[in-house]
Design a protein around this nucleic acid. Sequence first.
DNA 1: CTCCAGGCGTTCC
DNA 2: GGAACGCATGGA
Length: 301
Amino acid sequence: MSLCPTHPLSAVPFTGADGKPCLRVEGVGIFDTGKTFDCGQCFRFDPVPTPTHRVEYGGVVGDRWISVGQDAPGTLFLHNVTLEFFDTVLRRYLDLDRDYDTVDRQILKTVPGTVMARAVSFGRGIRILRQDGFETLCSFILSQNNNIPRIKRMIAALCRTYGKPLDGDGIYAFPTPAALAGASEAELRALGMGFRAPYLRDAACKWAEGWTATERLADLPYETAEAILCEIRGVGPKVAACTLLFGFGHTEGFPVDVWIRKVLDAHFGGTFPVAALGCAAGIAQQYLFYLGRYSDLFSDT
DNA sequence: CTCCAGGCGTTCC
DNA sequence: GGAACGCATGGA
């Protein structure tokens, strides 16, 4: 992990207008809340209206609804966050102890050329979140052949129906594996999960019975971790990749060359010599979605 | 109305 | 071993 010695984190607690604990965090480096929470790596954050900051994103992390705002570069406002929650959960969730300038330099060094340079520039500010593994797995099982607004609604329905009510009106935790395993396929279909209902059930059952030491997936070689996840019905290379990346922080050996070539070959017919990039792979994967979605930005190379 | 959405399982050859 | 095709559902 690349630490940023010149910008140590500092967190100053204060009390919000609603009496909730808040934190002002400085020294977080490059961080774009819009790109981070709205790029399709997580499905439980939405923009919330606020008079004080330009934009703020609210969502559930663990057992707590929080919101994240930003009014200056390198600074975050964390609402409903205690110092302890920041240190034990949020710091890791937001991937704050990584220097993304170094990451960008690694990408540009490994993949020279204007195409990736534009991708890096366009994706600048994205943080690869470290979400809960089970929640990430279920989210990307639901994502197949689906669109993001509907994915969000399906996840919200799961939380509302099988998740623990949290502090706040209409706020629910993501269901535990056991709670979700207790739902029948018919119930999940009635909830609108469609053909993904049995996939969800299989994931929940395997997780609930401690089917593998899932907390160690990040330490296994990528191909091994991928093969384990692919034993779950409805999980293939794409779902496994997103789960390992966004839920387990599995960045060592991520097959970024496959993803990059897939998109670049389709758009430019070119080939790039790409090695494993560690953390940079995560950023690059997000860039790929931008490449695919906004290919006009990269069309004149 | 048709087409499509950040795949994957099944069924063909 | 790869190319079609179906899948639930809702938004565009």
